[in-house]
Design a protein around this nucleic acid. Structure first.
Ligand SMILES: [Mn+2]
Ligand SMILES: [Mn+2]
Ligand SMILES: [Zn+2]
Ligand SMILES: [Zn+2]
Lengths: 146, 146
DNA sequence: CGCTAGTCGAGAAAGCTTCTCATTTACTTA
DNA sequence: TAAGTAAATGAGAAGCTTTCTCGACTAGCG
C-alpha cells in the first residue's frame, strides 16, 4: 500500500507524495510507461488538474530515490528517468528512435561484471548497462510512439 | 599526426583544434587523465594561458565526436566526458569516490548483448556499460586523486 | 595577395535541476 | 478536537552544463 511505503521512508504522507507515487505505479495515462522523467510526472499531474509544483516533483523523486522507493536512470540525452523500485535489478534496452524501453536481466553478464570488478581490485557498488538500438516498430515503417 | 587527423575529418586545421586534440592526447598536465569533461579541457587551456572560448571547446569536441575522433561518455552525474577514440571499443569501471576510470573489454559480455538485442528484435547500435565501485586506493585510507 | 567559406570568442539563451523563502500542511499532544 | 511545531509545499529565482547568435577573424585556395 502506498501510504505505508512513504511512512516507512520516514516521510510525511502528503497529497503530492501519494499522487506522485500513484503515477509511478500506474504509469499515468493508459500507457504503462514505467520510465518517466520528472517533467512527465509533472505533465501528468497538470493533465489531471492537480496543482503540484515542478520543484516538488523533483524534490519528492529525489527523496523517494534516497528511500529506495524509486531508482533513477541516466539514459543518453541528459535528463534522468525514474521508475518504481521493484526490488529486482535489471538493465535496459532503449530504442534510439521512439524511446521505448525493454527491461532484461542476464545472469552471465552480472557474473562477468563481478569478476571484472574483482580483477581490478574494485568493490562492486552498482552498474548501469544500456543497450541502444532500434525497436522492431522503428525498424519497419512508422514508429508507434509506444 | 594530429594535423592530418583534423584534415581527414574535413575540418580546417586551426590553433584551437590542434590544442584541444593535443590535450586529449596527453591528458593535459602530467596526469594521463584520458577522460575529460569540456570544462576540464577549457581549464587546462586557461592554465596554459591559451585564449580559447568555452563555446569553442564544446563545439570542437562535438565536431570531433561526429568525425569519429573522440567518443563521448555520460557517466553518472550529468556532464559528459570525452576521450580520444582509439578504434577499439571498451567499457568503464569508475570509482565513485575519486573518479578514477579503468577501461576493460569483455567478449562474453559483448556477445550476450548481441544475443539480448536479437532476442527482443532490436538492432544493436551501441551500448554503454559502467561498473561503479571503490578503487583499491579509496577502499584503503586516503584517496589519492589519481 | 585577395576571396570566401569556415571558424572563433563573448555573451545571451536554452533546458534541466536545485535553491530560497513565505505559506501551508501533517502529525503529535493535550 | 484544537493547538503547536516541524516538515513540506509552490512560485520564482538561481545554478549549471551545453548550445546558439553574430560580428570579427582566418585558413586554404587560386
Ligand atoms: Mn527499468
Ligand atoms: Mn575509455
Ligand atoms: Zn522504437
Ligand atoms: Zn577511487
Amino acid at each position: 500500500m502506498t501510504e505505508s511505503q512513504i511512512k516507512q521512508a520516514g516521510l510525511k504522507v502528503t497529497l503530492p507524495r501519494m499522487k506522485i507515487l500513484e503515477i509511478l505505479e500506474t504509469g499515468g495515462e493508459g500507457e504503462g510507461a514505467r520510465h518517466l522523467r520528472a517533467e512527465d510526472v509533472y505533465r501528468i499531474l497538470l493533465t489531471r488538474g492537480e496543482v503540484v509544483g515542478l520543484a516538488t516533483v523533483y524534490r519528492v523523486l529525489t527523496q523517494f530515490e534516497a528511500a529506495g522507493l524509486v531508482s533513477r536512470h541516466n539514459f543518453e540525452g541528459g535528463h534522468a528517468f525514474f521508475e518504481l523500485e521493484r526490488g529486482t535489478h535489471h538493465d535496459h534496452l532503449v530504442c534510439i528512435k521512439c524511446g521505448r524501453v525493454v527491461e532484461f536481466l542476464d545472469e552471465a553478464i552480472e557474473e562477468r561484471q563481478r569478476a571484472i570488478a574483482a580483477e581490478h581490485g574494485f568493490t562492486l557498488e552498482d552498474h548501469t548497462l544500456n543497450i541502444l538500438g532500434l525497436c522492431p516498430n522503428c525498424q519497419a515503417g512508422q514508429p508507434r510512439p509506444s
